[in-house]
Nucleic acid binder design. Structure first.
Lengths: 218, 218
DNA sequence: ATTTATTTTTAGTCAAGACTAAAAATTTAA
DNA sequence: TTAAATTTTTAGTCTTGACTAAAAATAAAT
């Protein structure tokens, strides 16, 4: 069994491993968890003893298969709870993260299986992120950043890279939500901003926004 | 804000105060929480500093109004989650306690309000225990132990005093659940056992069972 | 009204998980 | 290939919440 803190470390390493094959540095983990590198070193030793990470001093850490499975299960719970909050309790997509952060640590296999069923076995959370299955496997869809679309391309909004509440609220304000069709009308060379159309409305979108929106091309 | 441990102490004292007007002894709290009296003394000091209990050395403790409100809110959350587990996730009444024990500590007023609404503002949990409202008030119904009914009296099962899974599973086996009508056919003087009828079936019930079942007389 | 038994508190430890400051190892640059 | 910069680890502390053993206070019994 893992403590709250151990679970949070596993999850942090899991998320960091998505972007790289290399070992994860203590500093990277410390930043992710808003803690100090020295605290990370201490915890890594415990996790290493428990066979969920492999650790060599001064080299980064990697999750073992067991570690990956445990971490994926926490992410699975987090994302299922997010779906629950949005679908059943009328939360908006910018409100769910902090609560799911607490709920993901509840220990009860039956609870999470039943929740999964209640929600109709969803594959993605309210931000478009994939929900790991019981074995930790992800169903990835091929998606592109809005910024990579060319003029006149059309796609469906399927996710966000940044799921901070500020960004999500901004999208709400602009009428951009998951499932909406987006057409690229114009690309400005000098600042990489876009002119797009969403539900008949024309919008101007900065490159920063376009770099954080995932689109499924049609 | 209160820690997990502080919340558990408040809840324990809250439950112990239901049966008495007197201050709650350190020993009683220690027993309730399966800890030691010395640990209780330590925690009581912290809770006293936080103005949720009044504490005089060697005299028991009592919750302050603030303490009562906080404790009632934890009980409220516990019982609402129990209803959720039974009504929405197909848990049986003997499976809910341990999970609710975890869920009760989730901090999100919106979550609990929305859950309350989703469940149709229930007033009692799956064991017949009242759910405190937002201000901590309980809707008490007048109920009697089955053991206090006389021959030929009829009542509806509205709750249990002991909600251990062993007892609840025993009741399931006998076909006794909340809402069932129970008729007292016979009372045996020598061992205070009862002969009762539930849904047309005649059952023999020991005094220990009858002392743990709440009935609403008709 | 003492003595005895019980309850409660104090004093001193311990483990988990965090921190700071300093030392050691590694990487980068000159 | 040394020197400088960066990263990581160690050593030592702190807080929370628990524990044991002993002391102190209260309650019960003779």
């Amino acid at each position: 069994m893992f403590t709250l803190s151990e679970e949070n470390y596993l999850k942090a390493i899991y998320h960091l491993e998505i972007d790289t094959e290399k070992g994860i540095s203590t500093n990277a983990i410390a930043e992710q968890l808003a803690t100090k590198a020295s605290s990370v070193t201490d915890m890594i030793k415990k996790l290493s003893d428990k066979k969920v990470v492999v650790y060599k001093k001064y080299k980064g850490v990697k999750l073992t298969d067991l570690g990956k499975k445990i971490a994926a299960n926490i992410v699975r719970k987090h994302r299922l709870w997010e779906v629950f909050l949005v679908e059943k309790l009328n939360f908006s997509w910018d409100e769910v993260h902090d609560v799911a952060e607490q709920l993901e640590h509840i220990k009860s296999p039956k609870l999470i299986n039943q929740l999964d069923a209640l929600l109709g076995f969803p594959t993605h959370d309210p931000h478009g992120d994939p929900i790991p299955d019981k074995d930790g496997n992800l169903k990835t869809i091929d998606k592109s950043l809005l910024s990579t679309l060319s003029k006149n391309e059309i796609g469906i909004c399927v996710g966000v890279d940044d799921s901070s509440s500020e960004f999500l609220q901004f999208l709400d304000k602009k009428g951009i939500t998951l499932g909406k069709q987006i057409t690229v009308l114009e690309k400005e060379d000098f600042d990489d901003s876009l002119s797009i159309e969403v539900e008949g409305k024309k919008l101007s979108i900065s490159n920063k926004i376009a770099n954080n929106l995932y689109i499924k091309k049609q």
